[in-house]
Computed example of a mutant assay.
Amino acid sequence: MMLVLVLVRAAVLLVGLAVSCSSDFAPPTIDVNLGDEPQVRWMPILKVFESDFLKKAAQEVIDSTIPKWLHKVLRPLIKVSEVLLLPEPYGEELRGMAAHFGTSLSDTIMLNFAYEASAFCTSIVAQDKHGNVYHGRNLDYPHSVLRNLTVNVIFRKAGKTLEKAEDFQDAVLRLSKIPIITGVYYIVGGARAGEGVVITRDRGGPADIWPLDPLSGGWYRVETNFDHWLPSPAKDHRREAAEKAMNATGQEHINMYALYQVLSIFPVCNGITVYTTIMSGATPEKYTTLVRPPDCRASSG
């Protein structure tokens, strides 16, 4: 779903991180049971946020992203075409959110469009000299209200956490082949050496698969919002800054803390960075997210 939800377990970051990043904070955690009916499965959000706050936040994002005249035009059009826009079970999920969170269905759908138009990210997957694979991500989103709306979500089904592919290769195959509604970049980090890849997706299949290649010097991959084989836009220097920092860190010194530091430098971390997630498939207990302050450079130590 196109909510700003972080799929993480409740976690504590590495020792020392809280000292250097005292203004960062861990978001709350909720459980979502995929066995519940779609229209009620997101109700746990109301345990941590009041519906009035959610309604005002949604309106703020819409108003700052979609011009008022366009909002008025889109509302009736979306209402007429909602059946086409909302394949199941997502339609029932959104209808449930609209009913319980106090927003109209049209605005709930429009909020998804706002996300698509204004969300950015920087993702890095890297392997150290010992074969440990680390994965980090920043979400950039130009709405400060989202710093107070980010949550950790544990998805459960039949009492178990999440659904799993058989292994890393199976996950890569699934993410590469299954048709999706729009293009996307998948950054995948596994639990063993060599298990890291950036998948550039078209709606029907992969446009490019860019794996780690440590033996040839490709011990990390940086992906922002642009195809990695093309130059970055003139005003976007996140990729170059991240690559420079990764090279300065070196493969022999990369770890979860060092990766967090890379994701904390400007402009990788910037005025609209909402959160930073650090994880490693081999040590899921260290999978963590911290919400960043408006100027996260002040907290990078």
Rank of each mutant, 00 (worst) to 15 (best):
T150Y: 09
R75L: 14
L290Y: 04
L215K: 06
M97S: 13
D140G: 12
P211V: 01
L77W: 10
A98Q: 09
Y115R: 04
A114I: 02
I180F: 01
V19K: 11
V6R: 08
W210Q: 09
A282K: 10
K235F: 11
R147Y: 11
G194Y: 09
Y220D: 02
K55F: 06
V145T: 15
G102M: 09
C296H: 09
G218V: 06
E92K: 13
V125C: 08
Y185H: 13
E243I: 07
K129E: 14
L94V: 10
V8I: 03
D107E: 14
Y186A: 04
T65S: 15
K177Q: 14
G218I: 09
C121H: 12
K157N: 12
V197R: 05
N152S: 13
P38V: 06
V133M: 06
H253C: 11
Q39I: 00
N112W: 15
M246I: 02
T273I: 02
A241L: 02
I209F: 06
E166Y: 04
R41Q: 15
T289Q: 07
S20A: 12
I199C: 10
G301I: 07
S216D: 14
V198Q: 00
A171M: 12
L146M: 15
E60F: 01
Q59C: 06
D63A: 14
K157R: 14
Y141D: 04
G190A: 04
I109T: 09
T276E: 06
D167K: 09
E163V: 12
M97R: 13
D140V: 01
P87G: 08
I278C: 09
E37M: 07
S20M: 13
M256D: 11
V188M: 09
V268R: 03
A158Y: 12
L230D: 03
D170K: 08
P231K: 01
V262Y: 04
H100W: 05
E82D: 14
G194N: 10
P293D: 12
S299H: 04
W219Y: 10
L94D: 03
S300D: 03
L173S: 13
G205H: 00
R238N: 01
R147K: 14
L215E: 12
D128N: 15
H135R: 08
W229M: 03
